[in-house]
């Protein structure tokens, strides 16, 4: 059995609104697993169930074989990092970090040694006497991490820990988190709505939607092979066309034929492709081609993005700077079979 399991977890507020609908998740020891999803999908609720702040109406939470569903927060021994960091403003960095050890009634020397060790790991040794309000966002973030790690938790829970940092610091911090997590080998749950952040840091990603996990896989597999339209949309696919199976190929409603590399067992489904994977057809191909008209152009730096109106709806297409089009130009879009992916509706 997996190290950490959530079985059939159901949570509802106010008896009406169901937040989690029978959620299942398995995490192996030492893995960093992300819960990814839009706001309101239940990812933070899942984390709070694991932390013990929410009692699920149904389901079991197991860690290392023990049923912890009813164990109170303070006896779970999990490290938590909050979006707000939640550092104690009346305590210095040292005392913030020492708080959890004092709660465990450790000896003074042992506390001192452990606090100094973890401050070293997190690069905070020089800031030990500072107070939270005297520090920058990135430094506070590291203190929050050190405070959660020093108690040697069985699980590390991170709730959108990077969303209050500026873009550059965010990239640095996520490398830092990954480094510390791997060094200490600690099983980690990471909640985020940022797919780039999540893909870069995670061993596995659980994409959540409306209280269930839509797909649970490695970042690479999710990026290349999203299973549902929701997952595809959430991780950057912008173009969708309804397809029906007919023999070995797939057809749109108006009879255009598309071949794909990886077939799908369902009969009615959605084909999707990233804006950068669409090419321009200059050879007069018959399959995998959509005819359209060029619309608004936006500049993306490396490329231009065009909005193209086709019989299958609006398509976003990225093109190199050399391929210049004017608004109103006719265009033939080629959707290569190895890039066109089929997902469930």
């Amino acid at each position: 059995m997996a190290f950490m399991t959530l079985e059939n977890i159901a949570v509802c507020y106010d008896k009406k609104k169901q937040i989690l609908k029978g959620l299942n998740l398995e995490v192996e020891k030492g893995e960093l697993v992300s819960l990814l999803g839009p706001s309101g999908c239940g990812k933070t609720t899942t984390l709070r169930v694991v932390a013990g702040f929410i009692d699920p109406q149904e389901g079991t939470f197991r860690l290392d074989g023990d049923d912890l569903t009813k164990v109170p927060v303070h006896k779970r021994n999990f490290g938590l990092v909050f979006q707000s960091y939640a550092l104690f403003p009346h305590l210095s960095v040292y005392d913030n970090v020492a708080f959890g050890l004092k709660m465990r009634k450790m000896g003074k020397d042992e506390i001192d040694r452990k606090v100094k060790d973890i401050l070293e790991v997190c690069g905070l040794t020089d800031l030990a006497d500072r107070f939270p309000q005297q520090m920058s966002g990135g430094q506070r973030q590291r203190v929050a991490l050190a405070r959660a790690l020093v108690i040697e938790p069985k699980l590390l829970l991170l709730d959108e820990p990077l969303s209050n940092l500026d873009a550059k610091l965010r990239v640095n911090m996520r490398v830092e988190i990954k480094r510390i997590q791997k060094k200490l080998g600690i099983t980690t749950l990471f909640v985020t709505h940022d797919q780039e952040e999540c893909f870069s840091i995670s061993d596995k990603v659980a994409v959540m939607n409306q209280g269930v996990i839509e797909q649970y896989d490695s970042p690479e597999n999710i990026y290349r092979h999203p299973k549902t339209e929701f997952v595809a949309r959430f991780i950057g696919f912008e173009n969708f066309l309804d397809l029906k199976k007919s023999g070995d190929v797939y057809q749109t409603a108006d009879g255009k034929v598309f071949a794909v590399e990886t077939p799908h067992e369902e009969a009615a489904l959605t084909g999707t492709i990233r804006p950068e994977d669409i090419e321009i057809d200059r050879e007069g191909r018959t399959a995998n081609v959509l005819e359209g008209t060029v619309g608004v152009r936006t500049f993306l730096g490396k490329s231009y993005q065009y909005e193209v109106s086709t019989s299958a709806g609006k398509f976003m297409v990225n093109m190199r700077a050399e391929d210049q089009f004017q608004e109103g130009d006719p265009i033939r879009l080629y959707l290569p079979a190895n890039k066109l992916i089929l997902v469930s509706r």
Binding site: F53, F82, A86, F88, M103
Partner: peptide
């Protein structure tokens, strides 16, 4: 004082009474 203060203290091993007194 946000709820996160109480929650942070609890996650670090303090029961509600101790969290109240210490934080």
């Amino acid at each position: 004082i946000g709820d996160d203060m109480m929650e942070a203290a609890q996650s670090l091993g303090a029961n509600r009474l101790i969290a109240f007194m210490k934080v």
